[in-house]
Amino acid sequence: MPVIVVEVMPKAELLDPQGKAVAGALHRLGRTAFSGVRVGKRFELHVDGPVTDAVLADAREIAESLLANLVIEDVVSVRELTTAELEDRLDAEVGA
């Protein structure tokens, strides 16, 4: 079944207290190569039938009106999972 992935991040200019807390934990663990962390969201929309331009446009509209609040967040990407990505996922499920 086709899957559309929507990724949402807090706006760059806003403080991200979740990311700051994770970054603090990394620092305490001595993982000093990582200077900062920002925490966002990934949505997976399962689509009945093929992902046409209209379906993708609908997903973009949903992303910007519902999945993200554009006052505080940005939609980073809206894309269909590739066949290779879907196959990897099926392999992983069979392997489990």
Binding site: P17, Q18, A21, V71, I72
Partner: peptide, 17 residues
């Protein structure tokens, strides 16, 4: 009210967490 666009702006996690 902000999510319904009756008021502008938004509310985010407290800066101190």
């Amino acid at each position: 009210l902000t999510e319904a666009h009756l008021l502008p702006g938004g509310l985010v996690r407290n800066d101190h967490g």
